[in-house]
Protein backbone atom coordinates (compact mmCIF):
# COMPACT_ATOMS: atom_id res chain seq x y z
CA UNK A 1 0.00 0.00 0.00
CA UNK A 2 2.82 2.41 0.88
CA UNK A 3 4.53 1.66 -2.39
CA UNK A 4 1.29 1.95 -4.29
CA UNK A 5 0.69 5.34 -2.72
CA UNK A 6 4.26 6.53 -3.23
CA UNK A 7 4.23 5.57 -6.88
CA UNK A 8 1.10 7.53 -7.52
CA UNK A 9 2.28 10.54 -5.59
CA UNK A 10 5.58 10.70 -7.43
CA UNK A 11 3.78 9.97 -10.67
CA UNK A 12 1.57 12.99 -10.14
CA UNK A 13 4.48 15.28 -9.41
CA UNK A 14 6.12 14.12 -12.62
CA UNK A 15 2.95 14.46 -14.63
CA UNK A 16 2.36 17.98 -13.35
CA UNK A 17 5.90 18.87 -14.27
CA UNK A 18 5.53 17.51 -17.80
CA UNK A 19 2.20 19.28 -18.02
CA UNK A 20 3.72 22.59 -17.08
CA UNK A 21 6.23 22.10 -19.90
CA UNK A 22 3.44 21.27 -22.30
CA UNK A 23 1.22 24.15 -21.28
CA UNK A 24 4.08 26.59 -21.41
CA UNK A 25 5.32 25.24 -24.72
CA UNK A 26 1.96 25.42 -26.42
CA UNK A 27 1.16 28.87 -25.17
CA UNK A 28 4.51 30.05 -26.50
CA UNK A 29 3.49 29.25 -30.05
CA UNK A 30 0.31 31.25 -29.76
CA UNK A 31 0.06 33.70 -32.59
CA UNK A 32 0.17 37.39 -32.02
CA UNK A 33 3.04 39.06 -30.27
CA UNK A 34 2.09 39.59 -26.64
CA UNK A 35 3.84 42.91 -26.53
CA UNK A 36 1.92 44.16 -29.54
CA UNK A 37 -1.33 43.14 -27.97
CA UNK A 38 -0.46 44.87 -24.73
CA UNK A 39 0.75 48.02 -26.33
CA UNK A 40 -2.29 48.32 -28.54
CA UNK A 41 -2.57 48.33 -32.29
CA UNK A 42 -1.16 51.77 -32.87
CA UNK A 43 1.82 51.73 -30.56
CA UNK A 44 5.19 52.51 -32.04
CA UNK A 45 8.08 50.07 -32.23
CA UNK A 46 9.95 51.50 -29.28
CA UNK A 47 6.98 51.04 -26.94
CA UNK A 48 6.68 47.42 -28.05
CA UNK A 49 10.38 46.88 -27.56
CA UNK A 50 10.17 48.36 -24.09
CA UNK A 51 7.39 46.03 -23.15
CA UNK A 52 9.28 43.09 -24.58
CA UNK A 53 12.26 44.11 -22.51
CA UNK A 54 10.16 44.46 -19.35
CA UNK A 55 8.54 41.03 -19.76
CA UNK A 56 11.77 39.34 -20.79
CA UNK A 57 10.23 38.16 -24.03
CA UNK A 58 13.58 38.23 -25.81
CA UNK A 59 15.18 35.76 -23.45
CA UNK A 60 15.67 32.16 -24.58
CA UNK A 61 12.62 29.93 -24.06
CA UNK A 62 14.15 27.83 -21.30
CA UNK A 63 14.94 30.95 -19.31
CA UNK A 64 11.39 32.22 -19.71
CA UNK A 65 10.11 28.81 -18.68
CA UNK A 66 12.34 28.70 -15.69
CA UNK A 67 11.23 32.16 -14.59
CA UNK A 68 7.61 31.15 -14.96
CA UNK A 69 8.03 27.71 -13.37
CA UNK A 70 9.97 28.90 -10.35
CA UNK A 71 7.18 31.39 -9.77
CA UNK A 72 4.50 28.72 -10.12
CA UNK A 73 6.16 26.52 -7.54
CA UNK A 74 5.79 29.22 -4.91
CA UNK A 75 2.30 30.15 -6.06
CA UNK A 76 3.22 33.15 -8.19
CA UNK A 77 1.57 32.80 -11.56
CA UNK A 78 2.53 36.28 -12.68
CA UNK A 79 0.37 39.20 -13.70
CA UNK A 80 -2.67 38.98 -15.88
CA UNK A 81 -1.75 40.88 -19.02
CA UNK A 82 -5.25 42.13 -19.68
CA UNK A 83 -6.49 42.86 -16.19
CA UNK A 84 -3.08 43.82 -14.87
CA UNK A 85 -3.66 42.09 -11.58
CA UNK A 86 -1.89 39.09 -10.07
CA UNK A 87 -3.24 35.91 -11.59
CA UNK A 88 -3.53 33.78 -8.47
CA UNK A 89 -6.30 35.63 -6.58
CA UNK A 90 -8.24 36.02 -9.82
CA UNK A 91 -8.07 32.33 -10.51
CA UNK A 92 -8.78 31.28 -6.96
CA UNK A 93 -11.89 33.41 -6.74
CA UNK A 94 -13.26 31.99 -9.97
CA UNK A 95 -12.22 28.52 -8.94
CA UNK A 96 -14.15 28.78 -5.69
CA UNK A 97 -17.38 29.57 -7.54
CA UNK A 98 -16.79 26.71 -9.93
CA UNK A 99 -15.95 24.33 -7.09
CA UNK A 100 -19.38 24.92 -5.59
CA UNK A 101 -21.03 23.97 -8.87
CA UNK A 102 -18.79 21.01 -9.48
CA UNK A 103 -18.95 19.75 -5.92
CA UNK A 104 -22.73 19.78 -5.80
CA UNK A 105 -22.97 18.11 -9.19
CA UNK A 106 -20.44 15.48 -8.19
CA UNK A 107 -22.32 14.54 -5.04
CA UNK A 108 -25.57 14.23 -6.97
CA UNK A 109 -23.91 12.20 -9.70
CA UNK A 110 -22.35 9.81 -7.21
CA UNK A 111 -25.51 9.21 -5.24
CA UNK A 112 -27.98 8.96 -8.10
CA UNK A 113 -25.67 7.39 -10.65
CA UNK A 114 -24.72 4.50 -8.40
CA UNK A 115 -28.24 3.99 -7.12
CA UNK A 116 -29.74 3.88 -10.58
CA UNK A 117 -27.00 1.60 -11.87
CA UNK A 118 -27.39 -0.87 -9.03
CA UNK A 119 -31.17 -0.89 -9.29
CA UNK A 120 -30.97 -1.50 -13.04
CA UNK A 121 -28.50 -4.36 -12.59
CA UNK A 122 -30.45 -6.10 -9.86
CA UNK A 123 -33.64 -5.82 -11.87
CA UNK A 124 -31.92 -6.69 -15.12
CA UNK A 125 -34.26 -6.75 -18.10
CA UNK A 126 -37.27 -5.66 -16.10
CA UNK A 127 -39.14 -2.41 -16.27
CA UNK A 128 -36.92 -0.36 -13.97
CA UNK A 129 -33.85 -1.50 -15.88
CA UNK A 130 -35.31 -0.39 -19.18
CA UNK A 131 -36.44 2.90 -17.71
CA UNK A 132 -32.94 3.66 -16.43
CA UNK A 133 -31.54 2.60 -19.77
CA UNK A 134 -33.78 4.96 -21.75
CA UNK A 135 -33.06 7.76 -19.32
CA UNK A 136 -29.32 7.32 -19.69
CA UNK A 137 -29.57 7.11 -23.45
CA UNK A 138 -31.24 10.47 -23.56
CA UNK A 139 -28.74 11.81 -21.08
CA UNK A 140 -25.63 10.96 -23.03
CA UNK A 141 -27.07 11.69 -26.46
CA UNK A 142 -27.38 15.43 -26.25
CA UNK A 143 -24.60 17.81 -25.26
CA UNK A 144 -24.84 19.52 -21.90
CA UNK A 145 -25.06 22.98 -23.43
CA UNK A 146 -28.23 21.94 -25.18
CA UNK A 147 -29.75 20.70 -21.92
CA UNK A 148 -28.71 23.99 -20.41
CA UNK A 149 -30.56 25.90 -23.06
CA UNK A 150 -33.64 23.73 -22.76
CA UNK A 151 -33.56 24.22 -18.98
CA UNK A 152 -33.30 27.97 -19.37
CA UNK A 153 -36.14 27.95 -21.83
CA UNK A 154 -38.45 25.91 -19.60
CA UNK A 155 -37.63 27.01 -16.07
CA UNK A 156 -36.47 30.56 -16.61
CA UNK A 157 -38.37 31.82 -19.65
CA UNK A 158 -41.68 30.01 -19.64
CA UNK A 159 -42.17 29.06 -16.03
CA UNK A 160 -40.09 31.87 -14.65
CA UNK A 161 -39.21 29.88 -11.53
CA UNK A 162 -35.47 30.31 -11.64
CA UNK A 163 -32.95 32.86 -12.88
CA UNK A 164 -31.48 32.09 -16.26
CA UNK A 165 -27.91 32.86 -15.43
CA UNK A 166 -25.30 34.60 -13.36
CA UNK A 167 -24.33 33.89 -9.80
CA UNK A 168 -26.33 34.85 -6.75
CA UNK A 169 -24.97 36.99 -3.98
CA UNK A 170 -25.20 35.58 -0.49
CA UNK A 171 -26.16 39.03 0.76
CA UNK A 172 -29.45 38.69 -1.09
CA UNK A 173 -30.35 35.67 0.97
CA UNK A 174 -29.59 31.98 0.75
CA UNK A 175 -32.57 31.29 -1.45
CA UNK A 176 -31.44 33.68 -4.16
CA UNK A 177 -27.97 32.22 -3.99
CA UNK A 178 -29.22 28.68 -4.29
CA UNK A 179 -31.66 29.52 -7.05
CA UNK A 180 -28.80 30.55 -9.29
CA UNK A 181 -27.13 27.20 -8.75
CA UNK A 182 -30.07 24.94 -9.48
CA UNK A 183 -30.08 25.01 -13.26
CA UNK A 184 -26.32 24.72 -13.84
CA UNK A 185 -26.02 21.90 -11.31
CA UNK A 186 -28.93 19.97 -12.84
CA UNK A 187 -27.46 20.41 -16.28
CA UNK A 188 -24.04 19.20 -15.17
CA UNK A 189 -25.54 16.27 -13.29
CA UNK A 190 -27.81 14.99 -16.00
CA UNK A 191 -25.23 13.88 -18.55
CA UNK A 192 -22.89 12.43 -15.95
CA UNK A 193 -25.52 10.39 -14.15
CA UNK A 194 -26.11 8.53 -17.37
CA UNK A 195 -22.44 7.70 -17.63
CA UNK A 196 -22.02 6.50 -14.07
CA UNK A 197 -25.24 4.51 -13.99
CA UNK A 198 -24.47 2.69 -17.22
CA UNK A 199 -21.05 1.62 -16.04
CA UNK A 200 -22.20 0.75 -12.55
CA UNK A 201 -24.93 -1.38 -14.08
CA UNK A 202 -22.58 -3.32 -16.31
CA UNK A 203 -20.02 -3.88 -13.58
CA UNK A 204 -22.75 -4.95 -11.15
CA UNK A 205 -24.18 -7.39 -13.68
CA UNK A 206 -20.75 -8.92 -14.19
CA UNK A 207 -20.30 -9.29 -10.48
CA UNK A 208 -23.72 -10.83 -10.00
CA UNK A 209 -22.73 -13.48 -12.53
CA UNK A 210 -19.40 -14.23 -10.90
CA UNK A 211 -18.46 -17.53 -9.35
CA UNK A 212 -18.19 -16.12 -5.88
CA UNK A 213 -21.68 -14.69 -5.98
CA UNK A 214 -22.95 -18.07 -7.11
CA UNK A 215 -21.02 -19.58 -4.25
CA UNK A 216 -22.57 -17.13 -1.82
CA UNK A 217 -26.01 -18.11 -3.07
CA UNK A 218 -25.11 -21.77 -2.67
CA UNK A 219 -24.47 -21.02 0.99
CA UNK A 220 -28.13 -20.09 1.27
CA UNK A 221 -27.58 -16.44 2.11
CA UNK A 222 -30.55 -14.12 1.59
CA UNK A 223 -30.44 -12.42 -1.79
CA UNK A 224 -30.35 -8.97 -0.21
CA UNK A 225 -27.24 -9.87 1.73
CA UNK A 226 -25.63 -11.40 -1.35
CA UNK A 227 -26.17 -8.18 -3.25
CA UNK A 228 -25.11 -5.82 -0.49
CA UNK A 229 -22.19 -7.65 1.01
CA UNK A 230 -20.83 -9.82 -1.78
CA UNK A 231 -21.66 -8.07 -5.00
CA UNK A 232 -21.84 -4.35 -4.28
CA UNK A 233 -18.41 -3.85 -2.88
CA UNK A 234 -16.63 -5.57 -5.74
CA UNK A 235 -18.89 -4.00 -8.32
CA UNK A 236 -18.22 -0.50 -7.04
CA UNK A 237 -14.45 -0.81 -7.38
CA UNK A 238 -14.52 0.07 -11.09
CA UNK A 239 -17.06 2.78 -10.33
CA UNK A 240 -14.46 4.57 -8.21
CA UNK A 241 -12.25 4.85 -11.26
CA UNK A 242 -15.17 5.96 -13.36
CA UNK A 243 -16.05 8.68 -10.89
CA UNK A 244 -12.50 9.99 -10.99
CA UNK A 245 -12.66 10.12 -14.75
CA UNK A 246 -15.95 11.93 -14.46
CA UNK A 247 -14.27 14.62 -12.41
CA UNK A 248 -12.29 15.36 -15.53
CA UNK A 249 -15.41 15.31 -17.57
CA UNK A 250 -17.07 17.60 -15.05
CA UNK A 251 -14.25 20.11 -15.30
CA UNK A 252 -14.62 20.09 -19.05
CA UNK A 253 -18.38 20.43 -18.96
CA UNK A 254 -18.13 23.23 -16.48
CA UNK A 255 -16.46 25.41 -19.09
CA UNK A 256 -19.43 24.93 -21.37
CA UNK A 257 -22.08 25.18 -18.69
CA UNK A 258 -20.61 28.37 -17.27
CA UNK A 259 -20.73 29.81 -20.74
CA UNK A 260 -24.40 28.87 -21.10
CA UNK A 261 -25.44 30.25 -17.74
CA UNK A 262 -23.01 33.16 -17.70
CA UNK A 263 -21.74 31.82 -14.39
CA UNK A 264 -18.59 33.58 -13.18
CA UNK A 265 -16.33 30.59 -12.68
CA UNK A 266 -12.98 29.34 -13.87
CA UNK A 267 -14.39 28.17 -17.19
CA UNK A 268 -15.58 31.60 -18.17
CA UNK A 269 -12.36 33.13 -16.98
CA UNK A 270 -10.42 30.72 -19.14
CA UNK A 271 -12.48 31.43 -22.23
CA UNK A 272 -12.06 35.13 -21.62
CA UNK A 273 -8.31 34.65 -21.33
CA UNK A 274 -8.15 32.66 -24.54
CA UNK A 275 -10.12 35.29 -26.39
CA UNK A 276 -7.77 38.00 -25.17
CA UNK A 277 -4.57 35.97 -25.44
CA UNK A 278 -3.84 36.51 -21.77
CA UNK A 279 -1.04 33.96 -21.50
CA UNK A 280 -0.39 33.87 -17.74
CA UNK A 281 -4.09 33.47 -17.12
CA UNK A 282 -4.42 30.64 -19.67
CA UNK A 283 -1.40 28.84 -18.29
CA UNK A 284 -2.54 29.12 -14.70
CA UNK A 285 -6.13 28.16 -15.48
CA UNK A 286 -5.29 25.03 -17.44
CA UNK A 287 -2.62 23.96 -15.01
CA UNK A 288 -4.95 24.39 -12.07
CA UNK A 289 -7.74 22.40 -13.68
CA UNK A 290 -5.33 19.64 -14.68
CA UNK A 291 -3.90 19.57 -11.17
CA UNK A 292 -7.33 19.21 -9.62
CA UNK A 293 -8.06 16.36 -12.00
CA UNK A 294 -4.77 14.70 -11.11
CA UNK A 295 -5.55 14.86 -7.43
CA UNK A 296 -9.03 13.49 -8.01
CA UNK A 297 -7.36 10.54 -9.69
CA UNK A 298 -4.94 10.19 -6.82
CA UNK A 299 -7.78 10.06 -4.34
CA UNK A 300 -9.57 7.51 -6.49
CA UNK A 301 -6.45 5.38 -6.67
CA UNK A 302 -6.06 5.49 -2.92
CA UNK A 303 -9.71 4.57 -2.37
CA UNK A 304 -9.38 1.79 -4.92
CA UNK A 305 -6.32 0.46 -3.17
CA UNK A 306 -8.01 0.69 0.19
CA UNK A 307 -11.08 -1.23 -0.87
CA UNK A 308 -9.12 -3.81 -2.80
CA UNK A 309 -7.39 -6.25 -0.46
CA UNK A 310 -5.12 -7.44 -3.24
CA UNK A 311 -3.50 -4.03 -3.26
CA UNK A 312 -3.86 -3.36 0.44
CA UNK A 313 -2.04 -6.52 1.38
CA UNK A 314 1.17 -7.46 -0.29
CA UNK A 315 0.64 -7.49 -4.01
CA UNK A 316 2.10 -4.14 -4.79
CA UNK A 317 1.67 -4.47 -8.50
CA UNK A 318 1.70 -1.28 -10.47
Amino acid sequence: MTLYFLKRLIGIVLILFVMSLLVFGITQIMPGNVATILAGQFADASTVAAIEQRLGLNDPAYLQYWRWFSGVVVGDFGQSLVMERPVLPLILEAFASSAILAGLAFVLVTVFGITLGVVAAVRENRFSDHAVSVFSYIGISVPEFFWGIVAILVFARYLGWLPSGGAGNLNDGVLAWVSHLVLPVITLTFTLIAHVSRLTRSSMIDTLRSQYVRNARAKGLPEGHVIRRHALRNALLPTITVLAIDVGWLMGNIVVVEAVFSYPGIGRLLLFAIERHDLPLIQAGILLIAAVYCFANLIADILYGYFNPKIRYGHAAS
Binding site: M19, I286, Y293
Partner: peptide
Protein backbone atom coordinates in the same frame (compact mmCIF):
# COMPACT_ATOMS: atom_id res chain seq x y z
CA UNK B 1 -4.30 13.73 -17.03
CA UNK B 2 -5.85 16.61 -18.90
CA UNK B 3 -9.62 16.68 -18.73
CA UNK B 4 -10.63 15.93 -22.34
CA UNK B 5 -12.01 19.34 -23.19
CA UNK B 6 -8.95 21.07 -21.74
CA UNK B 7 -6.67 19.24 -24.12
CA UNK B 8 -8.85 20.37 -27.01
CA UNK B 9 -8.93 23.88 -25.60
CA UNK B 10 -5.19 23.98 -25.24
CA UNK B 11 -4.64 22.88 -28.80
CA UNK B 12 -7.25 25.15 -30.30
CA UNK B 13 -6.48 28.19 -28.19
CA UNK B 14 -3.15 28.80 -29.85
CA UNK B 15 -4.21 29.14 -33.48
CA UNK B 16 -7.17 30.65 -35.26
Amino acid sequence: SFPPIMLGLLMLAVTP
